[in-house]
């Protein structure tokens, strides 16, 4: 039997597999998870058009619409995943199995990130093509670094939430709903976060998407630097710190939840 790192890596691959392969078998996502966000994006684009906004603002909306795919994946398929597993009766099996829960969450994150990237790419390409978005990429290397760090911090946050959400009962639905529009608003999915002023924008930066999108806007639009909240280098550094903090916190809480499950024997009870 595999042990140690070998088991850890195989668990990651095993948990990522259904997220990647599942979407090949169930292709309805192409309609539901690309067309629907695109419709929402279109509505916001028409609002900016009604307001005679500069063309870059249409681009902000398209980019924000693509990034919603990641945030929805975080709250519904990462944060609430352990709760779904509890509801289906699988969580007890996860805890009994000899593999690490951290590896399971990492597998979920990597598989989810890959699958969601495809969705986000489709929304971005479709939006760019339909609304003729004028992208001007100033530094591809920095853009890649920002995206990678945003994803790492974001999925680290998702892993932390996954363990914390085990404490919820049926209110998990309401919690997820509460994390949707308010985060779209506070993270500035459809407008520059600088509009909030320094203090609110700083507080909103606890969600990695806030600084990630602000940096990406600065790096991909000609008007980007003028509407940026912080300098891109500073935002990259903060995102790196957030990545470490969230992944460490996820590990701590996951271990704690696992201990609770073993001691109390009630954590996996679906009636809770």
């Amino acid at each position: 039997m595999d042990r140690g790192w070998r088991l850890f890596l195989r668990t990651i691959v095993a948990r990522a597999y259904p997220r990647v392969v599942g979407q090949q078998r169930q292709r309805t996502w192409i309609f539901f998870e690309t067309f629907l966000p695109f419709v929402a994006v279109s509505a916001y684009v028409f609002v900016y058009r009604a307001l005679n906004a500069p063309a870059d603002y249409i681009g902000f909306v398209v980019m924000g619409g693509a990034m919603t795919a990641f945030w929805l994946n975080i709250i519904w398929s990462m944060s609430a995943q352990m709760y779904w597993e509890k509801d289906n009766g699988n969580l007890a099996l996860y805890i009994m199995a000899p593999n690490s829960l951290m590896a399971i969450l990492l597998g979920m994150a990597i598989g989810g990130m890959f699958a969601t990237s495809l969705r986000a790419a489709v929304i971005l390409i479709l939006g760019t093509w339909v609304f003729q978005v004028p992208f001007v990429v100033s530094s591809p290397a920095q853009l890649f670094a920002v995206f990678l760090l945003t994803m790492t911090a974001l999925y680290g946050m998702g892993m932390l939430f996954a363990s914390l959400f085990l404490l919820f009962g049926r209110d998990v639905w309401q919690m997820n709903t509460m994390l949707q529009e308010p985060v779209y608003f506070l993270s500035g999915f459809y407008f520059p976060v600088k509009s909030f002023g320094f203090a609110v924008a700083l507080a909103a930066s606890i969600v990695p998407m806030t600084l990630g999108m602000d940096a990406m806007r600065q790096l991909t639009f000609s008007s980007g630097p003028s509407i940026g909240f912080l300098r891109v280098r500073v935002e990259i550094a903060v995102l790196a710190v957030l990545s470490i903090v969230f992944i460490t916190a996820a590990k701590y809480w996951l271990d704690r939840m696992e201990r609770l499950a073993i001691q109390e024997g009630t954590l996996t009870d679906r009636r809770r």
Binding site: Y48, L51, N52, Q174, P182, L186
Partner: peptide, 26 residues
């Protein structure tokens, strides 16, 4: 709070979108 948070956030997105470009003769 739950009943208020989601709709207020949703409408605030539009308010801030409006404010972000309101100097363009809207």
């Amino acid at each position: 709070v739950f009943s208020a948070l989601k709709p207020i956030a949703s409408v605030m997105i539009l308010v801030f979108m409006f404010n972000a470009v309101s100097r363009s003769g809207t």
